[in-house]
Computed example of a mutant assay.
Amino acid sequence: MKLLCFYLLLLVPPWGFYAHKWINRMAVFLQPPELFVFLKKHIHYISDHAVNPDKRRYAVVGEAERHYIDLDEYNAEEKLVLPSLTWEKAVERYTEDSLRARGIVPWQIIRMKHQLTEAFMHRDVSRIVKLCTDLGHYIADAHVPLHTTKNYNGQLTGQNGIHGLWESRLPELYLQGYDMWIGRAAYEPRIQERVWRTVFDSHAAVDSVLSFEKRLSEDKKYTIEERNGVLVKTYSSLFSAQYHKALQDQVERRMRAAIQTVADIWYTAWSDAGKPDLGDEIFEIQADTIPRAQVLKVREEN
């Protein structure tokens, strides 16, 4: 009878809920003491609600296009111009409907950075926390190669499900072994340039994401696992291991880059607001409050 509950678990949330939460959480620990103290108080919300934008994708009009940009819908000349276009200039050139149809994640990130700066200036705690949380999600999405192409799930090349394989299955299997110690948040004076560089770096990896999966043997590609009392079809550990090896730590590199960018943009928004004092409670960071990867790194350095 359980076979009647068989589902194809290939259309999964971007980056997977687990990875989005981890990226936001780790970005908190990269902040300087003053900002860390504030964000640490809200770390459970910032990490647990990191997936809220995905939950809104199919319920809120205008939400879906905030998560991606189909760069392959623009020609080579247009790609050279895009990074210099503000949202207003882009609308003048392409119309808002056209932009939204192709995805607007770079402009969404830039817009929310300004909103976060304003929230910091007004010391609006609830708005700061919510914006940090959602902004972290969109920045993380911009680091995913398949969020920069119209072939977002391999549907144009007969590779349906690759979205979930790269974003969810691989982090699910290997994230605990990734080195997520990155350093400290740094001020980014050129936010627009940074954001566009991010999406172009992601887009440069699209070919390898698709071609490496295509080369692997179809033998033992899928397996059946039980999750929450339901049998699901998913990529086998063997196939996932082969794909992960072929990508040469690509998922880990993009996750590290996402964490750094989230941390840098949070910090930049706070700095641009004048580094407001968000609380007078200063406390020593205890080892058990730091993610395992950071504890190990601290011990090595000491």
Rank of each mutant, 00 (worst) to 15 (best):
E77W: 01
R184S: 14
V105E: 02
A76N: 14
D201Q: 10
T86M: 02
E77S: 14
L165Y: 03
R184G: 08
Q176E: 15
W196S: 07
E73R: 12
S168P: 11
P83D: 03
N160Q: 15
V129I: 12
W107R: 01
S84Y: 11
L116T: 10
I128P: 03
V209L: 15
L175M: 15
K113W: 07
H114R: 15
E78T: 05
E88D: 04
S98Y: 13
S208P: 09
R93C: 07
K89R: 12
G158F: 03
E188D: 12
V105M: 06
E78W: 03
A119S: 05
V209T: 04
R197E: 14
D72L: 05
I139M: 09
E167G: 08
L173S: 05
T95M: 04
R169E: 13
M121E: 13
K150S: 04
A142E: 10
L135P: 01
K89C: 11
W107A: 10
D141H: 09
S126V: 11
Q159K: 08
L175W: 03
D179W: 11
C132V: 13
E167H: 13
L116I: 09
M121Y: 08
S208M: 14
T86V: 04
R194G: 06
E172Q: 15
H114M: 10
Q155T: 00
R123T: 10
T133Q: 03
L165Q: 02
L146Q: 03
P83Y: 14
L156T: 00
E172T: 09
T157C: 15
V81H: 02
Q155C: 09
D201R: 07
V209D: 08
I191Y: 01
I104T: 10
Y174C: 02
A205I: 15
V199S: 00
V105H: 05
R93K: 13
A101F: 00
D72C: 01
H122L: 11
V206R: 07
R93L: 09
T149N: 01
E88V: 06
I128W: 02
H163N: 04
K79N: 04
M112G: 11
G136T: 08
H137D: 11
